[in-house]
Design a protein around this nucleic acid. Structure first.
Length: 821
RNA sequence: GCCCCCGUAGCCCAAUCUGGCAGUGCGGCGAGCCCCUUAAAAGGGCUGAGUUGUGGGUUCGACUCCCACCGGGGGCACCA
């Protein structure tokens, strides 16, 4: 190996960082619009929440997106890669209470810390478009959008049983309740009857589901699956049953089993249960409802629970059979799904069967599936089959029966085909301070009155410290001076709405604001949005699979209907990066297994940490920090730096076809790998290329021109992953970075297709599937020539050992398989 | 319980889509040799390691396709 003088044997990543960062700041390399006229690409990271400094997770996510953004810049695209902060939210509020501060102090101090870290971490952001959702200039438009949604009937207030987090003292959307617990703090969620604001997401259920077809292939399959499950479309029918003089509609996916409905159940906690109940059963029902109320959602939803319920002492009339069946109230029927009432078909539904067996109710098979009688086995039969005991429908297969029953119901009245969703409307009110106030005034005479657009934003009052303590109602209510306001409509005394919006409202449109962050005539400039949107590549954690991503999709569809955007999906492609974990577990304070990003960066430098993150595995896989070490990356980067130094000192214009070919193959492959987002493999290829170039540089008569091209191309490609080292390499090759010739303003290396063509290929000759010989042959060799050559090969002859050859399979030019008798 | 993904060297991965040579890289430990620098260390280079989770099937040929099982991860789950 070439002798390395001591003064440059040491590669000091920190010196490299300090040298180039100020130069880059001056050159302003990442401003969107810099390549005006070129095709545009919008690369977006899910924006950060400003809690403390950046951590390992940020380093990974933003590092990955940065590779893609820089790659597209090198490919000549005009790239928008913006940054902002999701800066409303609970942690700031809780910190403010603890420290007797205003939430803004904590928030904006952390934003500055994170911004500075991002800069040193060398993320290619366009800093000129920075936004914060807690700025009045931003939340003005969040409020404006709320009012437009309300005008379209998509924001409305209703009283209902809502999820309540006792710790955070606020209501939560369904999406923010995970397995019965608060998504944020893990506290078991309870129910409260409250009047709250909702967005009518359900009106968009079909489009949210159907438009996922466009995303197939460019979004992770599991995210699409999760959204599909969350929306939960069920095809079925509404069927009307008469209970006394009332019509009670049920939703069923199995109208074919109407003849098997032997009882009827309403949700015990629904008002309907009380309304239907016979006076004699009233007391029993009240007692049962008290029991149900005591259960947590988690207990209630346990599927292995005994079925419980109360006979309401009335009957329901089956519209098809004319039969009167008993009506029960039970907690296994959910008040807020379907109509809150069901027809129970114990033979063909496991839950109904469990209930029937607990209460001694009849089980009637109406679809013969070939399985044994559910009444005997306790196993409901839900599969395909032929109808029996079903009057005129006997003998029909299940699918046909469903159609016929629905058609008959529609013809006669008493029911019709229907689609039902699991998705509920988005509860957006929050009883907390640090969010966008809901721009509504409640007037004793005019009712709900929107704040006029020209009075937006409705700014937050100046509350701090103890005044923010959660008290079950919004702290804004305590700011009496703020809440009291003249009614915009009649001028009389009125009160502002004191709730704030869910912070997911803020983040449902921020990607649009980036296109024109200073626009003052609306939330965004439609012209700018047309140029940049939809986002070409979105990068973020899978934890938002059905929160932020569903909400943003909803927003864009509404904006499309408003004529403000001309596309229906905000994010054309989505990458979910994995988590950074340690010793097999998520990092946490209680486990004490946290890794401090700042320490890693000061030990190994930015580039080594970035490279380690990307190289550790496929982007979507978790990285166990115990399995990797940036020290290997430091060594690699040092090797590259040394190589650049050595090659920079060589003179001459000799070329070597082998070096050129290796380079061409690497560039070609890395290009395809980046496009396929297989970034870890790219790094492996860089290492191979580096090794090949090193060997070539150490040869007795180095091919200087080929080597220079190779190292230069390596610098350009590596620059997307390890920007500081690449700039150093670029500079060592003689580029004057200070004068503006930066590797981060260079072009992706071109590939000469002629260099990708192989002179010869290796043909494998197998005998009975075992490799017995290898032949170097021209790629265009004919089957006959190849067969002849293979059969003449001594190794093959030996392996066949005189036996007769039964078949020869030839796949020119790569393979011959000889099969002896 | 239902659905999805994944099991390749000590480790993270590649080759699986489209069946045809099982390979790149990394780290730890140990050993030897070489280079450089030497007071020493550090640094650089070379040299290893495999029944592709198990069993069956399809095929001339299976890490690759199919089936079953085992193991790991994730999602959904009283949604009618």
């Amino acid at each position: 190996m070439t002798q390395v003088p001591a003064e440059r044997a040491a590669y000091d990543p920190h010196a490299v960082q300090e040298r180039w960062l100020p130069v880059w700041d001056r050159l302003d390399l990442h401003r969107a619009g810099r390549r005006a006229g070129a095709e545009k690409k919008y690369v977006l990271d899910m924006f950060p929440y400003p809690s403390g400094d950046l951590h390992m997770g940020h380093a990974e996510a933003y590092g990955l997106a940065d590779v893609l953004a820089r790659y597209w810049m090198r490919r000549g695209y005009d790239v928008l890669h913006p940054i902002g902060w999701d800066s409303f939210g609970l942690p700031a509020e809780n910190a403010a209470i603890k420290r007797d501060q205003h939430p803004a102090e904590y928030t904006y101090a952390n934003i500055e810390t994170q911004a500075d870290s991002f800069r040193r971490y060398a993320i290619s952001f366009d800093w000129s478009r920075r936004l914060h959702t807690s700025d009045p200039e931003y939340y003005r438009w969040t409020q404006w959008l709320f009012l437009r949604f309300r005008e379209r009937g998509l924001a409305y207030r209703k009283s209902s049983a809502v999820n309540w987090c006792p710790k955070d003292q606020t209501v939560l959307a369904n999406e923010q309740v995970v397995q019965g617990a608060c998504e944020r703090c893990g506290t078991v969620v309870t129910k409260r009857e409250l009047t709250q604001w909702f967005f009518k997401v359900t009106e968009y259920a079909d489009r949210l589901l159907d438009d996922m077809e466009q995303l197939r292939g460019s979004w992770p399959e599991r995210v699409l699956l999760m959204q599909k499950n969350w929306i939960g479309r069920s095809q079925g029918a509404h069927v009307d049953f008469q209970v006394g003089d009332r019509t009670v509609t049920v939703f069923t996916t199995r109208p074919d089993t109407l003849y098997g409905a032997t009882f009827f159940v309403v949700a015990a906690d629904a008002p309907l249960a009380l309304e239907l109940c016979a006076p004699a059963q009233r007391e029993a029902l009240e007692a049962y409802r008290d029991e149900v109320r005591k259960l947590s959602d988690i207990d209630r939803q346990a599927t292995d629970r005994e079925k419980t319920g109360v006979d309401l002492g009335v009957t329901a009339l089956n519209p098809v059979t004319g039969e009167q069946i008993p009506v029960y109230a039970a907690d296994y029927v959910l008040a807020d799904y379907g109509t809150g009432a069901i027809m129970a078909v114990p033979a063909h539904d496991q839950r109904d069967l469990d209930f029937a067996r607990a209460f001694g109710l009849p089980v009637r098979v109406v679809v013969d599936t070939g399985s044994p009688d559910p009444a005997e086995t306790g196993q409901a039969t839900s599969g395909d089959g032929v109808l029996v005991n079903s009057g005129p429908y006997d003998g029909l297969p299940k699918a046909e029966a469903i159609e016929r029953v629905v058609a008959d119901l529609e013809a006669r009245g008493g029911g019709k085909g229907a689609i039902n969703y699991r998705l509920r409307d988005w509860l957006l009110s929050r009883q907390r301070f640090w969010g966008a106030p809901i721009p509504i005034v409640h007037c004793p005479s005019c009712g709900e009155v929107p704040v006029p657009d020209d009075q937006l934003p409705v700014r937050l009052p100046d509350l701090r410290g103890a005044a923010l303590k959660p008290a079950g109602t919004s702290p804004l209510g305590a700011a009496a001076d703020w809440a009291a306001t003249p009614c915009p409509s009649c001028g009389g005394d009125a009160q502002r709405d004191t709730d704030t919006m869910d912070t997911f409202v803020d983040s449902s449109w921020y990607f649009l604001r980036y296109c024109s962050p200073d626009f003052e005539d609306g939330p965004f400039d439609s012209e700018a949005v047309r140029e940049w949107m939809p986002v070409a590549q979105y990068v973020g954690g899978v934890e938002h699979a059905i929160l932020h991503l569903l909400y943003s999709r909803f927003f864009v569809k509404v904006l499309q209907d408003m004529g403000m955007v001309d596309f229906n999906e905000p994010f054309s492609a989505l990458m979910n990066q994995g988590q950074v974990i340690n010793q097999g577990k998520a990092m946490s304070k209680s486990l004490g297994n946290g890794i401090d990003l700042g320490k890693e960066l000061s030990s190994y430098g930015v580039d080594a940490v970035r490279l380690t993150m990307v190289f550790a595995g496929p982007p979507e896989d978790d990285i166990d920090w115990a399995d990797v070490s940036p020290s290997g990356s430091v060594k690699y980067l040092a090797r590259v730096a040394r190589l650049a130094e050595d090659v920079g000192l060589l003179s001459g214009d000799a070329r070597d076809a082998d070096v050129d070919r290796v380079l061409a193959r690497t560039v070609d492959e890395v290009t395809r790998l980046v496009e396929a987002q297989r970034l870890n493999v790219c790094v492996a290829r860089f290492m191979e290329l580096t090794n090949a170039l090193r060997r070539a540089a150490d040869a007795p008569a180095p091919a200087t021109a080929s080597l220079r091209d190779g190292v230069e191309a390596l610098a350009v490609m590596l620059g997307c992953f390890a920007p500081y080292t690449a700039e150093e390499v670029w500079s060592r090759l003689g580029h004057d970075v200070d004068a503006g010739d930066s590797v981060h303003d260079s072009s992706w290396p071109a590939v000469d297709p002629a260099l990708l063509v192989e002179d010869t290929v290796t043909c494998v000759v197998q005998v009975q599937g075992k490799v017995r010989a290898r032949l170097e042959v021209p790629p265009g060799i004919s089957e006959d020539d190849l067969r002849a050559q293979a059969l003449a090969d001594p190794g093959v002859v030996a392996a066949v050992s005189g036996r007769e050859v039964r078949t020869v399979i030839v796949r020119a030019p790569k393979l011959v398989n000889v099969v002896p008798a």
